[in-house]
Design a protein around this nucleic acid. Sequence first.
DNA 1: CGGCCAACGTTGGCGCGGCCAACGTATCAG
DNA 2: CTGATACGTTGGCCGCGCCAACGTTGGCCG
Lengths: 151, 151
Amino acid sequence: METTDGSQPPTRLRATPSWLLTQTAAHAARLVTEGLGRIDARGYHYRLLAALEEYGPASQAELGRRCGIDRSDVVAALNELAARDLVRRSPDPTDRRRNIVTMTAAGERELHRIAHTLTRIQDDLLAPLTPTERDQLSRLLTRVLHHHSRP
Amino acid sequence: METTDGSQPPTRLRATPSWLLTQTAAHAARLVTEGLGRIDARGYHYRLLAALEEYGPASQAELGRRCGIDRSDVVAALNELAARDLVRRSPDPTDRRRNIVTMTAAGERELHRIAHTLTRIQDDLLAPLTPTERDQLSRLLTRVLHHHSRP
DNA sequence: CGGCCAACGTTGGCGCGGCCAACGTATCAG
DNA sequence: CTGATACGTTGGCCGCGCCAACGTTGGCCG
């Protein structure tokens, strides 16, 4: 009996939104980490650099809050960024507990480079959807996300 | 300057579908693992039991293919299920490489119990969406998923 | 028939993302 | 002054997705 491999996921799964969500997200994450891996970056880098660009220098704790990254993980990611001079840590003169994190010019370039790679990945990810549908999807996800991220 | 905590994620992130997807999926996964954790279950259990219910007894490799779970992870999950007699492994008489995995009556009950918990979780997850919108979301995700899971 | 490749179950390990606990230091409100 | 709180840092855990390796077993083809 040769496993004709009509492998379709069980109906119960295909009918479960959370499963659709996590599976699709898994594919998306795979595309992203592969794509970013090729340019020696990862998701946390982009998030942090994006926050620095938009809101300017900030403490690590603030960065973590804005990006939804745990304080401890911010440390590791910033170490990686700082090692390549994409970011700089300097003590806050007004509060010696804090580090003020600043993006360097190289960091800005890196951000744009990552962003460029990412937009190509989005196209790959959403290939089967029309622009209108992509918008629909984004808006639906945004609403669900917003609903679950208010403390 | 006291961090008034107007913490909104950077615009770049909010405009990136893959980020919306993975973030929303992260929330979904949190709800699921918490909910299932409360009844001593986890995602892999549900997937495997659902496959067994729909397609009947199968080898571990086939289960893995149908559920999108790696062979090695199937082993671990089945160990957990077998330890609670929700599932039984028996050697395939026609092919001694294979184990035939069968769901027990207790397994069937467990499946329904998990399914019940999951439907409540879906409602929680999709709370801000109307039934029509939930359908839209599911159909969009299904299409993206289907596009990326054809070998 | 023999030999080779493929599939199977299993073990062990890796990576990412998300999270928590703990510590020492520093700050601020009472 | 004292206690609560925030900060950066270290170290660890979990779930999920993967990959490599091994010994066993089966199918195929020369």
